[in-house]
């Protein structure tokens, strides 16, 4: 029911027709309309990209304002830029910003690695292997996508504290893995279904075992989707809040979003300071993302299957 595969013959027929169509189309296009198109395409994408990156720029220059200046003009550039907010955050021991970053980094790395690993295995099995319970397992994981986390707070709290799993350094990895798996599984499932079966069949003829085929043939092929899963999950693990609030009490193991709540008072919020803290705590993954964006994108588009 959920994701049926129906590619195969029909696709191959379509593929054969493309080259001719493309060349014909190119000849018809005059260079003028090409230029107009180019302007439009680049314009739309450029505009959208700018709106996407503007929040970062805005967060940054706003964090250089003081509360008063921010509140009187939330969009304008700071007239007297200051690092005051950053200094106050880094020098206040109550904020424990550094330890929270270490905790978040550890949780994120562990969770993402496990999500990719298990998501790949389960996704592949569900996509390719027919066995009793395949459909049932798929539906079960689908359930995980639609559960509003807030509503399970009490049962999950009781479960973890009775099982003695609250307040441990590895506590958060468990729910992050569980709630990260469904998306990963469905992405892998959808991806694998588009990969021709012949590869595995050829491997099988060569006498490759299931495990070897899985990790040495299919996994490299799946790099694009695995990298994508990695990116998506990195940020959602880093930003996750509900479980962190629910399951961690000890300050020494708190993650970044939880430490962030120390910046908001009951009746007053110092927005520029919150922004400074936000940027500071996001900085590791932002830097990671931008520095490695080339490699990430390469990974995302690298696995093109030939034939």
């Amino acid at each position: 029911m959920i994701m049926s595969s129906s590619n195969g013959i029909e696709d191959t027929i379509v593929l054969d027709r493309i080259p001719e169509a493309g060349i014909r189309g190119e000849k018809i296009l005059s260079s003028l309309s090409r230029r107009v198109q180019s302007v439009i395409l680049n314009g739309i994408l450029g505009l959208f990209s700018i709106t996407c990156i503007f929040p970062l720029v805005w967060l940054f220059y706003s964090s250089l304002k003081l509360k008063r200046n921010f509140n009187s003009n939330i969009i304008g550039l700071p007239k007297e830029p200051t690092f005051e907010n950053y200094i106050r955050i880094m020098t206040n021991p109550d904020y424990h910003i550094w330890s929270s970053m270490v905790n978040s980094a550890r949780n994120t790395v562990m969770s993402v690695a496990l999500i990719i690993f298990f998501g790949f295995i389960v996704g592949y099995i569900l996509a390719r292997i027919r066995f009793r319970g395949n459909f049932l397992i798929k539906v079960m994981f689908l359930l995980g996508l639609v559960i509003p986390v807030y509503s399970l707070m009490v049962p999950i709290y009781v479960l973890f504290s009775r099982a003695g799993l609250s307040n441990k350094w590895f506590t958060l990895v468990i729910p992050y893995l569980a709630f990260g798996l469904p998306i990963a599984i469905f992405l892998v499932d959808g991806y694998i279904r588009a990969v021709p079966k012949e590869l595995e069949e050829a491997a099988a003829i060569d006498g490759s075992s299931f495990t070897r085929t899985l990790f040495q043939i299919i996994m490299p092929l799946s790099t694009p989707i695995l990298v994508t899963i990695g990116i998506i999950q990195t940020f959602s693990c880093w930003n996750e809040f509900v479980f962190a609030l629910l399951l961690l009490k000890r300050q020494s193991i708190q993650t970044v979003p939880l430490a962030m709540t120390q910046f908001t008072g009951q009746f007053s919020s110092d927005y520029p300071k919150i922004m400074a803290a936000l940027l500071l705590t996001m900085s590791p993954i932002i830097v990671f993302y931008f520095v490695f964006s080339r490699q990430i994108i390469k990974g995302m588009v690298s696995g093109a299957v030939k034939g």
């Binding site: 593929l15 493309g22 588009a194 694009p224 989707i225 588009v301």
Partner: peptide, 23 residues
């Protein structure tokens, strides 16, 4: 977008490039 791009990546590149958006 990243999900769709990575899916497109699984399709043969040569096929895809001639199927580009023009008009």
């Amino acid at each position: 977008m990243v999900i769709i791009i990575s899916a497109i990546a699984s399709v043969d590149k040569e096929i895809f490039e001639v199927a580009e958006l023009d008009g």
